[in-house]
Lab assay of single mutants.
Amino acid sequence: QVATSTVRILGMTCQSCVKSIEDRISNLKGIISMKVSLEQGSATVKYVPSVVCLQQVCHQIGDMGFEASIAE
């Protein structure tokens, strides 16, 4: 089973930030795809909930120095 959710990301300033986040999160087990939008300050994450949760994704992004939260 696959889920798609949006994560809000604060602190991104350039495409390099976007690429860094996409590269790191895409390597997590259970992540199918991730598309980060600098303009919208968010990311669309396609993932397998039984393998990885959005809290883990937000935590990983937080470790990179950005502020991440699950969009309502």
Rank of each mutant, 00 (worst) to 15 (best):
Glu67Asp: 10
Val36Gln: 00
Gly30Arg: 04
Thr44Val: 13
Val48Phe: 14
Ile31Asn: 00
Ser33Asn: 07
Glu22Met: 08
Cys14Lys: 01
Cys53Leu: 10
Gln40Met: 13
Gln56Trp: 15
Gln55Ile: 13
Glu39Trp: 08
Ala43Gln: 01
Gln60Ile: 15
Met34Arg: 00
Thr6Gln: 12
Gln56Ala: 12
Cys17Gln: 15
Lys19Gly: 05
Ala3Gly: 04
Ala71Asp: 13
Met12Glu: 00
Ala43Val: 05
Cys14Met: 04
Thr44Ile: 15
Ile25Gln: 00
Asn27Lys: 13
Gly11Ile: 06
Thr6His: 10
Thr44Asp: 06
Ser50His: 10
Gly30Gln: 02
Ile21Asn: 01
Ala68Ile: 06
Ile70Asn: 05
Met64His: 01
Glu39Cys: 07
Arg8Ala: 08
Glu22Trp: 07
Leu38Tyr: 09
Ala3Thr: 12
Gln15Leu: 12
His59Leu: 15
Cys53Ile: 08
Thr13Ala: 05
Ile32Ala: 00
Glu67Ser: 14
Ala43His: 03
Ser42His: 09
Ile70His: 06
Thr4Trp: 10
Ser5His: 11
Ser26Glu: 07
Arg24Gln: 12
Ile31Gly: 00
Lys35Ile: 09
Met12Thr: 01
Val36His: 00
Gln40Val: 06
Ala71Cys: 11
Met12Arg: 00
Asp63Ile: 13
Cys17Tyr: 04
Thr6Glu: 11
Gln40Pro: 04
Ser16Val: 13
Ala43Tyr: 03
Ile21Met: 02
Gly41Trp: 07
Val7Glu: 02
Val57Trp: 04
Ala68Tyr: 05
Gln40Asn: 12
Tyr47Thr: 00
Asn27Ile: 12
Tyr47Ser: 00
Gln15His: 10
Ser20Thr: 13
Asp63Gln: 15
Gln56Asn: 11
Ser42Lys: 14
Gln1Ile: 09
Gly30Pro: 04
Glu22Asp: 01
Phe66Ile: 02
Gln56Arg: 09
Ile61Ser: 02
Val48Cys: 08
Val36Met: 03
Gly62Trp: 15
Cys53Arg: 13
Ile61Met: 04
Gly11Lys: 05
Val51Asp: 07
Ser37Lys: 05
Thr6Leu: 13
Glu72Lys: 07
Lys46Ile: 15
Ala43Gly: 13
Ala68Arg: 01
Leu10Met: 09
Glu72Leu: 09
Tyr47Ala: 00
His59Gln: 15
Leu38Gly: 00
Lys19Glu: 11
Cys53Trp: 08
Ile70Gly: 04
Ser26Trp: 05
Ile32His: 04
Ile21Ala: 02
Thr4Lys: 08
Ile25Thr: 03
Arg24Cys: 06
Glu67Ile: 14
Ile21Trp: 04
Ser26Tyr: 07
Leu54Gln: 01
Val48Met: 14
Lys35Tyr: 07
Ala68Gln: 01
Ser50Leu: 08
Ala68Leu: 05
Ser20Lys: 15
Ala43Thr: 01
Ser37Cys: 09
Ser42Pro: 04
Ala71Met: 13
Ser33Met: 08
Cys14Arg: 01
Gln60Lys: 09
Leu28His: 03
Lys35Gly: 03
Ile61Thr: 03
Gln40Leu: 14
Val2Glu: 08
His59Trp: 14
Met34Phe: 15
Leu38Phe: 12
Gly41Ser: 13
Val48Asp: 15
Ser37Phe: 13
Arg8Pro: 05
Ile61Glu: 02
Ser69Met: 12
Lys35Phe: 08
Tyr47Met: 01
Ser50Thr: 12
Thr4Asp: 04
Thr4Ile: 13
Met12Ser: 00
Ser50Tyr: 09
Glu22Val: 09
Gly41Gln: 14
Thr4Ala: 04
Gln1Phe: 07
Pro49Asp: 04
Val51Ala: 07
Pro49Leu: 06
Gln15Lys: 11
Ser5Cys: 15
Gly62Ser: 15
Arg8Lys: 11
Val18Ser: 12
Lys19Phe: 09
Met34His: 01
Lys19Ser: 10
Thr6Tyr: 15
Leu38Ser: 01
